[in-house]
């Protein structure tokens, strides 16, 4: 579920790249400060995008950056986002990272085999402790995410659920998260509405690309996958059946993407908006192309 929402690096301007890294590094630093060193390991691109999006709709001036050193490798120089007024955005992004990572870990423990179960189980107590702290400080986020996980589990147990129904809990989750965050930023009613629609389709996109990406492994392990259900794919299905399902998935993803782009066009974005637009118009389609149609995934490494 993590790592799908990211910019297309070679289409970023150098300024934009530095700013993106700046937000990334700031989030890492804040995670360490708020939830301890180990929490830094849960840093991901999706929550970085959340921070970029929130920073790019701020009306009161744009984010300022300052030079510093990497907190993990002091030999490396990097940029940090100045805190002035952005502290709340990073606090929200950190809480989201910790809460989402916890539920992802729970899901992994539930889904994987004995060896991996043991490994995930080993980090569980730590993640649970951090999660408790984040959940206490941000009960709204916790409520949204835990609710979505419950609904998701129920839907996956039902008889032959459709693609839209399967994607609904994640879609609604991101939608609510963005709407709540817009409310905190006081950006006005229309931004909240745009975020609601954009979040719904972004969540949908994330759920569906994850499902399409995991299609083969889910079929092999017999795990639930909405595309396998729709096309009745099983262990005996041929490669052409799977690639037909992926092509179909691409069409469904394109539809969500066009809605995300429409919503983003309506947002009043400041100078960080070009990164937001890069993620939506280039990063996400690139991810679809890499994951659905290429045998070797060349552009999904670290940014």
């Amino acid at each position: 579920m993590f790592g799908y929402v990211r910019p297309q690096k070679f289409e970023l301007l150098v300024r934009e790249y530095d700013e993106y890294r700046g937000v990334y590094c700031s989030l890492c630093k804040e995670l360490g400060k708020r939830y301890g060193l180990a929490a830094r390991l849960s840093l991901n691109y999706d929550c970085t995008f959340y921070a970029v999006l929130m920073l790019s709709v701020r009306k009161d001036g744009t984010a300022a950056f300052t030079k510093g050193r990497c907190c993990v490798n002091p030999l490396k120089k990097c940029y940090y986002c100045r805190r002035g007024g952005n502290g709340d955005i990073f606090a929200d992004a950190c809480a989201l990272t910790v809460i989402l990572t916890y539920y992802k870990l729970l899901d992994n423990i539930h889904d994987s085999g004995a060896v991996k179960k043991f490994l995930y189980g080993a980090v569980y107590p730590l993640a649970a402790r951090k999660h408790k702290k984040a959940a206490a400080g941000f009960p709204e986020f916790e409520g949204i995410v835990s609710g979505a996980m419950e609904t998701q589990a129920k839907i996956e147990k039902s008889d032959k659920p459709g693609i839209d129904l399967c994607a609904h809990p994640t879609a609604e989750m991101i939608s609510r998260i963005l709407e709540v965050s817009a409310g905190k930023l006081n950006t006005g009613e229309s931004t909240a509405r745009i975020f609601r629609s954009m979040g719904y389709n972004l969540g949908r996109w994330i759920y569906l690309i994850d499902a399409a990406d995991d299609l083969e492994s889910d079929i092999a392990s017999g795990s639930f996958n909405p595309f396998a259900v729709k096309f009745s794919l099983g262990k005996k299905s041929g490669a052409d059946e799977i690639s037909a399902a992926k092509k179909y998935a691409n069409g469904v993803l394109n539809m969500s993407l066009s809605q995300i782009a429409e919503a983003a066009d309506l947002l009043g974005l400041n100078s960080l908006g070009s990164i937001t637009r890069n993620v939506i118009l280039k990063g996400l389609p690139q991810m679809q192309k890499e994951l659905l149609f290429k045998k070797e995934k060349t552009n999904v490494g670290p940014i």
């Binding site: 092509k247 691409n250 069409g251 469904v252 993803l253 394109n254 539809m255 993407l257 066009s258 809605q259 995300i260 782009a261 429409e262 939506i280 118009l281 996400l284 389609p285 690139q286 679809q288 192309k289 659905l292 149609f293």
Partner: peptide, 15 residues
């Protein structure tokens, strides 16, 4: 309109 969206006309990937 929706068929156009699906094919990647308004953003997305057209294989």
């Amino acid at each position: 309109r929706v068929a156009g969206q699906r094919s990647g006309m308004y953003g997305g990937d057209d294989p």
